[in-house]
Design a protein around this nucleic acid. Structure first.
Lengths: 104, 104
DNA sequence: GCAGTGTATGTCAGAAATGACATATTCGCA
DNA sequence: TGCGAATATGTCATTTCTGACATACACTGC
């Protein structure tokens, strides 16, 4: 998918894979990853603070224990959506979420 | 999926569909939606501020114009991941993102 | 009028994320 | 030590999201 896109862009005369482009992309990717990590850490903190087990939290948000474990382990298969859902379900306040975004 | 889950939970003896449960869920869902809306508005602001067309932004983040349009239209098929990606790619600063989270 | 530029909407095949499950591992605590 | 609870890891069918494309609509200046 990504590769096809790149091939197509190249065919269309785009400069693809230049150093600037690469660095730009990785920087944006890095920012997203940093954000996720920060939120993940907030999820764990919030869950522990409220003395919830992963099973408790999973039930609250109609997910499964293994998903919660994956969230907290930073598994790449976990979306930002699910992380934020977990954060909300864990009882984090709006302020807690803001702080998570700030600590990053 | 959701329905099956509910049936299963019922079969397992869970109380499902009680008023508290319903309100709780909708409240959490509402918070997520509010967050998304706030970020969506930030994407559009940031894009316009930097005088980028939807096509420009799409190229920056290797997406497509129609996806950007859907992001800004609040299309339900758009994930939080993509919204935040767009926000970052549009040139929003970390502070801009924090503010978006705050304004909600 | 109508050409150009930007945005919106619908569709779809392929990719990614999800819940569920089985099973393993870790961690107290008696 | 061993037992139970909590957490981690791997897999997979199904659901959801994605980029791409076509095409429609909106607006501006000619």
């Amino acid at each position: 998918m990504r590769k096809n896109k790149i091939e197509r862009l190249k065919a269309d005369g785009w400069k693809v894979g230049s150093a600037e482009d690469f660095l730009q992309l990785s920087d944006e990717e890095a920012r997203l990853v940093a954000l996720k990590l920060s939120l993940i850490s907030a999820v764990k903190k919030s869950r522990i603070k409220r003395k919830l087990s992963q099973i408790d939290l999973a039930q609250r948000m109609k997910s499964s224990q293994s998903r919660i474990a994956k969230i907290e382990a930073g598994d790449p298969s976990v979306s930002l959506d699910l992380i934020v859902r977990a954060l909300i379900a864990s009882g984090a306040t709006t302020r807690d979420i803001q702080v998570a975004f700030t600590t990053n």
